[in-house]
Structure formats: structure tokens, C-alpha cells
């Protein structure tokens, strides 16, 4: 069995004694096939009993052990040390707590904000069957209806996407990807009766319309769930339910127009067009934060080279739509 000495650089912070977080270095003899979690356990049992992190199932199903490994949020228990070595070369493997959540101690973060958001967005099914009559008859659900929500029900609430989400990075009140995913899962369940109510909650401030379409949540979901498909579907539903008078929906309309006209978004003037002058002024603090994080959009937007094709696509779509409505 291949074996070698591997260095780890681990984020440490115990609010009781440390003024500031610091990094601790450990060298561990590791064999091929070892996971990051096994290394953490080894360090805790043999080198530093105070090292603090969460883990439970050790099998990638409970969602306890997400941390950032070399800067990327993932499950410690399913991450191979050898794969990380291939990435980091001779550098030590860096282990840090998830982003966008308060650190309680070392690698352990407070996930209560995620639970609070689940609560305030009705992340549960409201069945048509009254409670006292439950258990006697099952709903009839077709295989295809089940498939729509199958993958969304894989979510293990590990918060990896919460940590990677670019909107979370600038606004911690943002609804967050797993909560949007849950809303999608419930609203597209044929047994659900309160979809409209939920959609109202989800489209409130800091909600659905704030998503920047950066796809980071999808890239980093430890269960490979196509979260963005869910977010798109929720947006469509909002239009279908004519919840389009809101600022968020205006934002989406502007988005639509921009792509048609330029092939890309004129982000700098987006707030002005969707929020009006007063609303845009209110966004200055957020814009500053985004600038600090180097996420400011370019000031001028050039048309993309293939814009003609894009416009053709739009025309065809509009024609199709008109045809559908007249028939």
C-alpha cells in the first residue's frame, strides 16, 4: 500500500482562549485511500485532542462533516487525501471551516441560520389529506411526477453550497441555495396544496430574485443536485402565477431584454432599471461590498459577436409563443 507523509494546515479558533484565529500544522503518515475525515480523527486521537469538528455517519449521507479543503467546501468523509495531493502538490493541505456561517470553534460552524431559513420558507409539504384521516389511502403519483422531485430530495443539508454561494458572500440574509431547492421540491410535488403561499415567502426580499446565476452552488453540491434547474423552475412559476409586478420580476424582465439586445447583461445599470433611483441608492453599501470582493460588474457592456443569432432565437421563441396562444 502506497504510504507517505502528508502535511495539513488547519484553521484553529477557540473563542475562549484565542484572540484571533490561527493555523496549526500537522504531519501525518497517510496511505492511499485515506479520507480527510480519517486524518482529522487521527490527529484528534493521537496529536491534538482539542481539535474540533463534526462528523457522524462517516459515509457521506448525514451532512455533518462539510469543511473547506484547499479552499473548496466539501464533505471531509468522502474526500480522498490523495486527490487533494494531486491538486496541492508539495503545499500542505489546507482545512478551514465553511464560509458564510459563524465559527463556533475550529472547523465547527453554527448552522442554525440555515434551519431558521427553512422554517421561515415553509420547507415542508402541506398535504391535502387532513391529519386525522392520514394513513388510510396513498396519493397516486406517477413515476414521472416522482422523478421531477427525486434528485431535489437528495439534499443532506450539508451547507457546502451555502458556503460557496456568491450571494451569501455579500448578504447573509439571502435565502440560500438549499432553501430554494427545498421550495422547488415542495412546489413541484403533486401532493402539495400551499405552493402559492410558499412562493410569496420565497420571493420576498433577499429571496429568489437575488440569485446571481453564478452556478457555484451547482458546481459544489456534494450530492450533485442540479440546484439551478430548481431555481429556474421557481422563477417560471412566479411568472405563471403573475407574481411579476415585484422588483425581482422586473429584474428578470430587464435580464431578458438585455440578452436580446446585447447578448449579455448590462449589470451596472440593472439596479436603476429595476429598483428606480431611490432603490439604487439603497444598494450602494452592497455594491461597495461587492467591489471589495472584486465582484463588481463591468461598467460598459459590449454586444457579443453572436448577437444576431441570439435575437433570432428570441424572435423564434416569441413567434412560437404567439402561435401557441392563438391555437
Amino acid at each position: 500500500m502506497e504510504r507517505r507523509e502528508v502535511s495539513f494546515r488547519i484553521y484553529r479558533y477557540n473563542p475562549q482562549v484565542d484572540r484571533h484565529p490561527f493555523y496549526d500544522n500537522f504531519k501525518v503518515a497517510a496511505e492511499r485511500g485515506i479520507t480527510v475525515l480519517r486524518v482529522l480523527n487521527h490527529i484528534k486521537e493521537n496529536l491534538e485532542p482539542r481539535l474540533t469538528f463534526r462528523a457522524y455517519c462517516q459515509a457521506g449521507i448525514c451532512g455533518s462533516c462539510a469543511v473547506r479543503v484547499n479552499g473548496v467546501s466539501k464533505l471531509a468523509c468522502t474526500t480522498q487525501v490523495w486527490d487533494e495531493l494531486a491538486e496541492s502538490g508539495d503545499e500542505p493541505i489546507l482545512l478551514e471551516p465553511l464560509n458564510n456561517l459563524e465559527v463556533i470553534r475550529d472547523l465547527l460552524v453554527d448552522i442554525d441560520p440555515l434551519l431558521e431559513k427553512l422554517k421561515s420558507n415553509s420547507s415542508w409539504l402541506t398535504s391535502s389529506i387532513p391529519e386525522q384521516q392520514m394513513g388510510h389511502k396513498e396519493h397516486i403519483v406517477s413515476e414521472t411526477e416522482f422523478e421531477v422531485i427525486d434528485s431535489a430530495s437528495d439534499c443532506i443539508l450539508c451547507a457546502s453550497c451555502y458556503s460557496e454561494c456568491s450571494m451569501m458572500g455579500v448578504n447573509r440574509r439571502y435565502i440560500s441555495p438549499p432553501v430554494l431547492l427545498k421550495a422547488f421540491r415542495m412546489n413541484n410535488d403533486t401532493r402539495e396544496t400551499l405552493a402559492g403561499e410558499r412562493l410569496k415567502q420565497v420571493t420576498a426580499d433577499h429571496g429568489l430574485w437575488d440569485c446571481t446565476h453564478c452556478y457555484r452552488c451547482v458546481e459544489h453540491c456534494c450530492k450533485k443536485i442540479p440546484i439551478m434547474d430548481g431555481i429556474h423552475r421557481l422563477r417560471e412559476e412566479a411568472f405563471e402565477r403573475r407574481m411579476s409586478g415585484s422588483e425581482g420580476a422586473r429584474h428578470a424582465q430587464v435580464f431578458f431584454d438585455d440578452i436580446r439586445d446585447n447578448g449579455r447583461l448590462k449589470e451596472m445599470t440593472l439596479p436603476l432599471r429595476t429598483k428606480g433611483v431611490a432603490g439604487s441608492l439603497a444598494m450602494i453599501p452592497l455594491a461597495l461590498k461587492m467591489a471589495i470582493k472584486m465582484r463588481t460588474p463591468p461598467l460598459f457592456t459590449k454586444k457579443i459577436p453572436g448577437i444576431k443569432r441570439v435575437r433570432e432565437l428570441y424572435l423564434r421563441l416569441e413567434k412560437l409563443n404567439a402561435e401557441r396562444q392563438s391555437s
Binding site: W124, L125, S127, I129, M134, G135, H136, K137, E138, H139, V141, S142, E143, E145, F146, I149, D150, S153, M186, D189, R191
Partner: peptide
Amino acid sequence: RELENLGAPFSRFP
């Protein structure tokens, strides 16, 4: 069946 009624996403027959 109660769990199904409450929302558990069971796999389905045709």
C-alpha cells in the same frame, strides 16, 4: 401510508 400522506417521496409503480 401516513408517511406518504405527510410527504415522503416513495418510489412508484407504473
